[in-house]
Design a protein around this nucleic acid. Structure first.
Lengths: 189, 189
DNA sequence: ACCTGAACACCGTTCAAGT
DNA sequence: ACCTGAACACCGTTCAAGT
């Protein structure tokens, strides 16, 4: 049984994908969900709260993808799989990526716990890789922060068209490979 | 002599800094500039065009800061100075950073040429550093793309609160140092 | 408990008119 | 050339009312 609440979130996600944040109006969300233009207020505090619920769901999807992608890998390859899954998710749904990591005014409990889940998944992959590959730096927190930053920036610059100006320029996946090589000190796998 | 056009851009910048993108309404921009709520349409095609002019100006400021910061440095320190200037600019004016690198629908000539200028400044710093330090990777384009991505992601995660959850966690400047160490293969300066 | 319809105070944009 | 004021079609949010 799909609740009205779920249909509202689905409608918002569809509108976001199709027309960006400007297309997500509560009036159209209601229309698509088959309710009135202010029925959303019976399920969410306000528009921001609806978007946060959507963003939290997306972060849980991301965490699942990261877990799946890294399950069969070992060593530095595990880190590579994790970063490629992150980038793949973001490139496939740019508007959701931007929503999730955009400017949120004030804290939101559900969103924060979902974010923590995604970071924990990456951290596990990195910690395992470190245990299996002595060429990796030892400080897990620093390494995770650096890897996340690079993957995130790669995606953001790619999506905004700032990364590749000419054809043949290195793309996100090329740069992830380069990053992992550098992070291992350029030595043999 | 400050033109009406300049006062409109200044008003938009002030509103952006104070209240984020939602606070930048053409009506309030006009009010602050001492003109009517639709005088902006005599100087800009629409709201997006005004914001693009603001963003382009900010990118030119950034390019200048990068040039200044790297002028007195050599080798890998030049890259460090460049990245710290980038991060410093972004953290000091988060809303402008987000505007500049946000989602622009369709191309905008002035904005694109300003972006090219900023990238060229970073590229010069990196190319000089490569000439002075053999420990750096040789491919300038790849290296620039990787450095820009990391710096950009660092800022974006920091601003959204996703980078540092606990006090004492490494901040942007720590991670820039780590990145430069890794990029040099971890060897001696 | 969940939803509707009218209303309010906004917003970007257009247009006719003024100097 | 530059600006104004009214108007239009939106929007988020609130509120009284309905089942």
């Amino acid at each position: 049984m799909t609740t009205t609440r779920d249909r509202l979130i689905d409608a918002a996600a569809g509108l976001l994908d199709e027309g960006g944040p400007a297309a997500v109006t509560l009036r159209e969300v209601g229309r698509r969900a088959g309710v009135s233009h202010n029925a959303p207020y019976k399920h969410f505090q306000d528009k921001r709260d609806l978007l946060a619920a959507l963003a939290a769901g997306e972060l849980r999807v991301l965490a699942g993808r990261l877990a799946d992608a890294t399950a069969g890998e070992t060593g530095a390859a595990r880190i590579g799989a994790s970063l490629r899954a992150y980038v793949g998710w973001a490139i496939a749904a740019p508007e959701r990526f931007r929503l999730v990591f955009g400017a949120w005014t004030g804290p939101h409990a559900e969103l924060e716990s979902a974010a923590q889940e995604a970071v924990a998944t990456i951290t596990e992959a990195v910690a395992s890789a470190q245990a299996e590959d002595d060429a990796l730096p030892r400080d897990t927190e620093r390494l995770v922060a650096l890897l996340r930053s690079t993957a995130h920036g790669l995606v953001d610059l790619e999506l905004s068209g700032h990364l590749r100006k000419r054809p043949g320029a290195p793309g996100p996946d090329d740069l992830i490979d380069e990053l992992i090589t550098l992070v291992r000190g350029g030595g043999p796998a």
